[in-house]
């Protein structure tokens, strides 16, 4: 794996505390949450937070994700000021939603559960949208939906490919039907992206469920999942509870989805930049509005005369 060590992602130490990531016993070593083995923490960060012993891909914050995926210094964030307006004045059991949002914002360092902008992946320009799981489980509320749609519309305007990187618990219950309708809103925007012949590459990471999986994240030209990521519509506990069925081993993993024909590939985190860059290379002509002579526009027969 030669390019495993080639890239040096910048890493913000504080981010580690916001992910499910391995427990840090003394700051020098980290304990893998899957195999419980100890890994030298600097190595762990250098290895994209993937355990070298068992290949467990630990969850990333949106910042870590973008640091790993994008060329250093290439990210330009958009619409950071968009936050929810709490349309229902929702409160559950005395817990007010607007307070939850404030806590989530402090915990995650993000004002919402989606980070959008443009950046480069091994030299290829793209619009990117990455979820922040530490912000209310990256649930899809109004602000998420608005930021997502703005990013897609910007991709159309700039004629750039669109890359989404998702993990999410699904809907934002505190916004009820407003949240539900973001599924329609985000998907409709992607329909427009498609009409403009711009590709959407969707990266599914652990865990990805509900409203996100059942909307924009599976409406993609290419769907890639990280190894071992849990992906589905209903969560395994819900399924077991309702059907009283014992779920088979490996149910709803990325590999399970690949076997059932739901995704294009399972790709290790360290290979993602190169894989996406290769794909973007193949779409470059289509994205730039150029067509392969001979068949793409064969029927017009007058390419270049206009």
């Amino acid at each position: 794996m030669p390019d495993f060590f080639r890239r040096k992602p910048t890493f913000n130490r504080e981010d580690a505390e916001h992910s499910d990531g391995p427990v840090v016993p003394d700051g020098l070593w980290v304990k893998c949450t899957s195999c419980k083995d100890l890994v030298y923490s600097k190595d762990f960060e250098r290895w994209y937070r993937v355990c070298p012993k068992c290949d467990h891909h630990a969850r990333l914050t949106a910042t870590q994700r973008l640091n790993y995926l994008l060329d250093s210094g290439s990210f330009e964030e958009w619409d950071r000021g968009i936050v929810t307006a709490d349309p229902l004045h929702f409160s559950a059991n005395g817990d007010a939603y607007h307070e939850k949002v404030q806590q989530a914002s402090q915990k995650s360092g993000q004002p919402e559960s989606l980070v959008t902008g443009r950046g480069r992946i091994q030299g290829y320009d793209a619009v990117v949208a990455a979820t922040e799981f530490a912000f209310l489980g990256a649930s899809m509320g109004s602000a998420f939906g608005e930021k997502f749609v703005r990013a897609v519309e910007k991709a159309v305007e700039l004629r750039l490919p669109f890359i989404s990187i998702s993990n999410s618990g699904g809907a934002r219950m505190h916004e009820s039907t407003f949240s539900l309708m973001q599924m329609a809103k985000t998907t409709a925007a992607l329909s427009r992206l498609g009409e403009h012949k711009l590709p959407h590459v969707s990266i599914l990471t652990d865990p990805c469920y509900g409203g996100v999986t059942a909307s924009y994240a599976t409406v993609a030209d290419i769907i890639i999942a990280e190894p071992g990521a849990m992906i589905g519509f209903a969560g395994p506990r819900v399924i077991e509870q309702i059907t009283r069925q014992k779920l088979p081993a490996g149910f709803q993993t990325a590999e399970f989805l690949l076997k059932h024909g739901m995704i294009d590939m399972v790709c290790r985190r360290s290979d993602l930049p190169e894989t996406i860059a290769l794909l973007l290379l193949h779409y470059a002509d289509a994205t730039m509005g150029r067509h392969t002579p001979g068949y793409a526009h064969a029927s017009t027969g007058k390419e270049g005369d206009a």
Partner: peptide, 24 residues
């Protein structure tokens, strides 16, 4: 939507998403 094992195997989430896309 049905939350069952076979629904997941055959792509419940994708089926819903594709309908949203088509309707739009």
């Amino acid at each position: 939507a049905d939350p069952g094992l076979s629904s997941e195997e055959r792509g419940q989430a994708t089926a819903i998403a594709e309908n949203l896309l088509a309707l739009s």
